[in-house]
Design a protein around this nucleic acid. Sequence first.
DNA 1: GGCTGTGAACAGTTTCACAGCG
DNA 2: CGCTGTGAAACTGTTCACAGCC
Lengths: 270, 270
Amino acid sequence: MATGRSHRPATRSRGIPEATVARLPLYLRALTALSERSVPTVSSEELAAAAGVNSAKLRKDFSYLGSYGTRGVGYDVEYLVYQISRELGLTQDWPVVIVGIGNLGAALANYGGFASRGFRVAALIDADAAMTGKLVAGMPVRHTDELEKIIVENEVSIGVIATPAGAAQQVCDRLVAAGVTSILNFAPTVLSVPDGVDVRKVDLSIELQILAFHEQRKAGEGGAPAEAEGAVGVEGAAAKVTKPATTADSDRAGDDNKGPDGDVPAVMPA
Amino acid sequence: MATGRSHRPATRSRGIPEATVARLPLYLRALTALSERSVPTVSSEELAAAAGVNSAKLRKDFSYLGSYGTRGVGYDVEYLVYQISRELGLTQDWPVVIVGIGNLGAALANYGGFASRGFRVAALIDADAAMTGKLVAGMPVRHTDELEKIIVENEVSIGVIATPAGAAQQVCDRLVAAGVTSILNFAPTVLSVPDGVDVRKVDLSIELQILAFHEQRKAGEGGAPAEAEGAVGVEGAAAKVTKPATTADSDRAGDDNKGPDGDVPAVMPA
DNA sequence: GGCTGTGAACAGTTTCACAGCG
DNA sequence: CGCTGTGAAACTGTTCACAGCC
């Protein structure tokens, strides 16, 4: 499987760490809000609070982009908005296609957050012929048969997959074959793509499961209201709870064993 | 803001790293699929491929849960499904409420991935009186006025916010006041919550922006088809692209900024 | 022989704390 | 003085490589 080639120290494209890239959109949103309120400058402390991170992290992040602040003053809001937008590639237009116009696809089509950034929905595509021509978010749904044509004609390089899991890989293959090199996958499947194609996935149920994990920990613990740090609860979450609470371990596996010698608990949820 | 208390070495509840917790749902899904095909055992290599991670990582992850494998053989599928479910807290029932029944809320309500895990949608709630009583995914939408009552009566501890950004914080406050301690936020806002409440967020446009960043890097590069490693394109993506492409910097900021002080590694293997 | 489990090396990320500039 | 920018320290996460068991 793994093609001969081994590791790779690279990872960084031009010096901007992935973790930083993932936060730039956050900063951008906070800055956009400030910009709309005509706030001229902002300190790392204020901006960090608005973005839900801590200020040291924010300053470090910005330091990878360059020195865009003014000591003793802060950052110029407009200028930073521009710099981050440029860094993210949002100063250009990105045509995207959304494949799979079910509930989720429709939600995505209607989502204002796309258009307001540099994204333009070039087409909505669905395999169901009954959907063809229907208007969703003011656009006619087009049939899967046209997928390749649409991709090529619009020079689409980003595709969003919102189909059922079963159709995802096939759609993915067609998108890639037609020229798409970045895919946002909402279907609960692992997609295989050739080298050079980026895939990011968003899985609704995974997020809930992670919450359940932490929730369970809280419940297992009697008192202690757990703690966190800065007023805001950011993405990563975690780092909460307060105790090992070896409790709940009761049922089994308490020690080491592994083996249901010949049989399994089978208790399973559903 | 920050309440006296400072850091906390903790982070790990009972030894399971956050990164591992975040992957457990992935393994669980792959295992469930194997289970449905009645596959009795699976090796770390196979399971890793199915989950889209590498086998060393998977083995390390599992080692935090205990020794559930058999050397020379692999893992018992059913048993692992059970262990992971238990670890994630999915062997119990988690009633959740979804607030904001727009396109996205409806998509979530219809999403099968919830019910199939331990999640049960206890109620769909919307502020629009015109929605009240309407059936979505077979459930009647209820009005926001009832929010507190619903939470308490159903002992809901997990809430999903799918409202417009403007309403999110207010909804969040009410959820928390009524007893919710875990929130999955789809609204593009940073939520403030008291200590002990977990928030995870899913932001559709952020994911696209991250893709755009990488896409831009690819475009800046002429040839080199970039590389990746094992056939599958996993979540984190990144680590692709092939060149710094200091190019695009042209327009502005060419003057004062200093970035990484000249050096700039530039080029890369290729 | 095959595959798990894991210490140890490595890589990436966050936090600290303070020098340096406006 | 205030606030940015950043080395260095601390930490978290990943990968390697192999001992140990089946």
